[in-house]
Amino acid sequence: MSWEDACIGALRAAEVDLVTYVPDRVLGPLIARLEGDDAFTVLSAAREEEALGIVAGAYLGGRRGIVLMQTSGFATLANVLASLAVPFRIPIPMLVSERGTLGEFQLGQAMVCRTMRPILDAIGIEHHTIERLDDVGFVIGRMLDQAYSTQESAAMILSPLLTAAERAGPR
């Protein structure tokens, strides 16, 4: 089983069927699989904030969604998380492919990556970094369950330790 398979299994089990994203090479194979699966509605957004807004609105209307993005996209989200997700108690699951570490070639990406966990901690959003294939289904499944039970957002971070092994070349 690939990490993409494990992600999709966890989403199905939690009845998450709306996916919004901003394109990313690492997440590309997962997005392609989701787009080819009639059980999911998959929407490309122009900005990550917008992608979060859509999933927030869907939740208010009774539908579960998740936002897919790269690390640098997360860096644009402090306002929407602090002013919409937290005060209105809207659980917004985020699946973030981690870039900016373990072989990053752009200083700007490395710097942006260093802001991610401090921002999550400052806003009080649960986050876990997934490094091993065996952990994917468990971590995503448990984090989704907790997000909906507690009505808090959650960030599931996919480490290069998990995702890089299957990639053929450099980004």
Binding site: L18, G53, G61, S83
Partner: peptide, 25 residues
């Protein structure tokens, strides 16, 4: 009615999400 107390610019995405969740409304 829903009132956006922040998140300038996100009324359209929020409405789109509601519309996707409830196509009959």
């Amino acid at each position: 009615n829903f009132y956006m107390l922040g998140s300038m610019g996100l009324a359209v995405p929020l409405g789109l999400g509601v519309a996707l969740a409830q196509p009959q409304r």
